[in-house]
């Protein structure tokens, strides 16, 4: 698709070029505190109309199924779809550059001034609060599946293996995946 194509009147999506991809993923990155996906959906579906809601969900499903950070996978799929390899580079660089610069600067400040009690105390407080967000995220994900006992059982097994027992993640996933997939094949609605 190029900019010269007539817009489809049913969903009126707009195909971005490499420059728009770069700026779009940059906006997603800098607004994404505590997870970028809600902001990605807002930017790409609601505000810029690059994708329909259905297309967004389909691409996200694949990116979650495949290994790798979800939003980085999305930058590859969406960049390639609209502008080929230059689109991939524009999307990915737009996504990671500014957060990396901010994060490394903050780490440098921490390593230089981290011995001050106020700074180390603040980081402890941030960690403690953020750990709570993780626990809540896990609980919310489990709550969605409350009617699928097999999913909760496999979630519990994965938690025991990777968390309580501290086993390598590859062993936990490769050991449990065949059974969890079999179970969902038999019992999923």
């Amino acid at each position: 698709m190029t900019r010269g194509d007539p817009p489809d009147p049913r969903d009126a999506t707009h195909a971005p070029d490499a420059r728009e991809l770069f700026l779009g993923f940059l906006r997603i990155a800098v607004s994404g505190f505590g997870g970028t996906l809600p902001f990605a959906r807002r930017e790409m579906v609601e505000q810029r109309k690059w994708l329909t809601a259905r297309e967004f969900t389909d691409i996200l499903a694949i990116c979650q199924l495949m290994p790798g950070p979800n939003i980085c996978n999305m930058s590859f799929c969406i960049g390639a779809r609209f502008a080929g390899l230059p689109g991939v580079v524009a999307s990915f660089v737009g996504l990671v550059t500014v957060p990396c610069i901010i994060g490394i600067s903050l780490t440098w400040v921490y390593l230089t001034y981290g011995q001050f009690p106020a700074v180390s105390g603040m980081l402890r407080g941030i960690s403690a609060g953020a750990v709570g967000l993780f626990i809540a995220l896990g609980i919310k994900m489990a709550w969605v599946e409350r009617r699928s006992p097999f999913m909760l059982i496999f979630a519990a097994l994965a938690f025991v293996g990777a968390g309580l027992l501290g086993l390598p993640l590859v062993a936990v996933i490769l050991g449990l995946a065949p059974f969890s997939i079999l179970a969902s094949w038999r019992w999923a609605k």
């Binding site: 499903a61 626990i135 896990g138 994900m141 496999f154 979630a155 293996g161 969890s180």
Partner: peptide, 18 residues
């Protein structure tokens, strides 16, 4: 089925991370 089976493990791994 593959997606649901892996999603179940993802929930446990998120809690293990926490």
């Amino acid at each position: 089925a593959i997606q649901r089976g892996l999603s179940a493990l993802t929930i446990g791994v998120v809690l293990a991370s926490a």
